[in-house]
Nucleic acid binder design. Structure first.
Lengths: 206, 206
DNA sequence: CAATTTCTATAGTGATCGCTATATAAGTCG
DNA sequence: CGACTTATATAGCGATCACTATAGAAATTG
């Protein structure tokens, strides 16, 4: 009896659903949506299928909870980096550097759940959820860049998303934090150039 | 009887194995290794499981053939871009631009099979093959960059790999060729800066 | 022709997938 | 206490996974 809410009738839960969401997040991030079975989650939580379905409804519904929790918790660094001091290029520099730190392998977890959690999945429901989350992230980036570069906000968002995609993929392939940071810094400089350029980069090599 | 080799005894094949490898490549690229079943391939080829196993041995063995064919054919653009005229930065500019073109969705296919074909897969054998192919690609990049930048060849390879990873991932997420090209050009400029820089970028904004 | 070789289809292996029908255990409430 | 409510476990659903045992069909060879 992990949860103990007074005034509730019926047999109490033998596990904490919030902790279960965290456990599931870890599993989904390690193996991807399709790579984790309901049986795996059940084993990790010490529960059997009926308890799982009574608590979460379905594997997809649990994944939705995991994604919401992920975005609201771990994923906060994105809006935080974007809304910090300085211009768009400063924000992107913070964002990519932070991503390089966070995406690097820690406790068997690497990369971003939203970016890579359902890659190659054949589950339409899970794919649709991720599409929504990615669209929301793109809108967030675009809105930030549009404040200074309304004309090319969309292109700038594409560059940042592709950079984040690359960092997450390399992290999942085992890249070290130092390796990721090198790419992050290079891409951040590329972004800064892009915010300046009309045609090519207006810089002069010394 | 697609194949007709004279002098062979026994019942002839009802399908062309080389064409089958191409068909399988398409399927693997569309849905990933785990997303394609032997039954799917059989249906696409109009054959039943015994014919499949008689010809290829196993799903993993077919995938190995697909990867070899992919690297030897489609994947030639990588060494070709690297060995063209100019310095490393010129080579990377060609490489990333070519990748942007090729990775963009065409006939339902997007991204790179080596980069994303087994992402989130739970098949150890297929994963091991991809690890080998990725290592070979990294070595190729590193060797090219080491000719001009022996000290930082490894870091430069990391940047290019992360850029390619990003382009492939964004392509699989549906990015247009124009979008990918914008990122490719930005990353190529970042790479050029990196080949010049010791500390930060030695440029002056005009 | 018959013998040999090779590929073919039908059917089914055991394992795993997400999910559930049934019954029981473990609580609160009157 | 009994009535009620909720969560639990055992067992199994149909579907799909990679793969195979068996036997027959289609070619070359003597």
């Amino acid at each position: 009896m992990t949860t103990k809410k007074v005034g509730t009738r019926g047999r109490p839960r033998s596990f904490d659903p919030a902790a279960a969401v965290e456990t599931a997040q870890t599993l989904f991030q390690q193996r991807g949506y399709d790579g984790v079975g309901v049986a795996d989650i059940g084993k990790a939580l010490g529960i059997t299928p009926p308890s799982f379905y009574n608590a979460f409804g379905s594997k997809a519904a649990l994944f939705a909870q995991v994604l919401d929790s992920y975005t609201a918790g771990y994923g906060r660094f994105v809006p935080e980096a974007l809304e910090g001091p300085g211009d768009s290029a400063d924000a992107v520099d913070r964002l990519l550097a932070e991503a390089a730190c966070r995406y690097a392998t820690k406790d068997g977890i690497a990369g971003c759940l939203v970016i890579d959690g359902v890659r190659n999945s054949s589950d339409a429901e899970a794919l649709a959820m991720i599409v929504r989350h990615k669209a929301a992230s793109r809108d967030m980036l675009k809105a930030r860049f549009a404040r200074e570069h309304p004309e090319k906000a969309d292109g700038l968002a594409s560059i940042v998303i592709t950079a984040l995609n690359g960092l997450s993929a390399s992290a999942r392939d085992g890249a070290s934090e130092a390796e990721l940071m090198l790419s992050a810094k290079a891409f951040a400089r590329a972004f800064r150039e892009e915010t300046r350029a009309s045609g090519g980069p207006r810089v002069r090599v010394l």
